[in-house]
Write a protein that binds this DNA or RNA. Sequence first.
DNA 1: ACCTTTTTAAGAATTATTCCTATAAAAGTA
DNA 2: TACTTTTATAGGAATAATTCTTAAAAAGGT
Lengths: 159, 159
Amino acid sequence: MYLTQPVTNGKDLKARVEEFKKLCRSRSLRITSQRLEIFRTVAQSKAHPSAEAVFAAVRKKLPNISLDTVYRTLASMEEAGVVFRVGLSSKARFDADLTPHYHFVCMNCGEVYDIFPGEGEQPVLMPQNINEFGEVKNVNLQFRGICNRCRKATEDIQK
Amino acid sequence: MYLTQPVTNGKDLKARVEEFKKLCRSRSLRITSQRLEIFRTVAQSKAHPSAEAVFAAVRKKLPNISLDTVYRTLASMEEAGVVFRVGLSSKARFDADLTPHYHFVCMNCGEVYDIFPGEGEQPVLMPQNINEFGEVKNVNLQFRGICNRCRKATEDIQK
DNA sequence: ACCTTTTTAAGAATTATTCCTATAAAAGTA
DNA sequence: TACTTTTATAGGAATAATTCTTAAAAAGGT
């Protein structure tokens, strides 16, 4: 089974902003100038900006915006699937098992699970053009989501 | 071309510690009780421990060890390829391009480069057993290494 | 225009990580 | 074994990234 991610790009900025507004409505998130401007900034950038970088850019339009708003908004945008967070969250975790394997990282509790490829299975291929970028030292493949334990816990609360 | 990582596991702890000592010698890193204990801790754990967790565990054997030593040592062990850092370093970066693509992250300058799979190429397969772990929300594939710009810069210094 | 709920700014607080400096321990050498 | 040089360490201070707290402001429905 191949990985597929939704293709929501290739549209112009205005269209994406409209789509974003719709999404906000559907989630009953209020459409604020801060949210729109943060979205525009990330949507326009190809630089994988940090929160600070987004803050600096948005500040030019909204001089009073706070860094906290940027963090909060980026987090909610990630949650909504509108932006992708490159890399993992704050705390580093280590693994001394160097046999080829990957990780399932729970977005709720932060737990890290090993995923060992099944017999004959090999989930990562090296892209052909990888040398254009540099010398690869290692490969990090993470599947991020909600682990079964956390899912069960939320189900139990709902009851 | 398939990804292959060195297989250095499946050996017992003592053997791994001896191997680690050799590696230290070859890199003229001194063999200290702190290093050995930190290595033992990470090598024994299947919990992907954080620096704090390693600190807490090592402290039982070496009550005066400092957290800084743990951080320093884990970093040098990562550099030596003895442990793997799960996830990226501290600063979060964002990407609003949701078309399927991956990233090359420079371990030196932190720059993030997009890698779009070539025509018909699809570097990530979903592992068959993924549902055992939880519900996948997204996939994060990073190739980490030294980008060409940084490599060029270091070459220039050597001249 | 009014009311309710959500969002915000501002700054304080927290968390993770790194830096600084004097001391201590390792490895090489006589 | 004692001596020397180099590297690593503890301890605490400093920094960087992120999150929390609170009162005020803005959104969206009525």
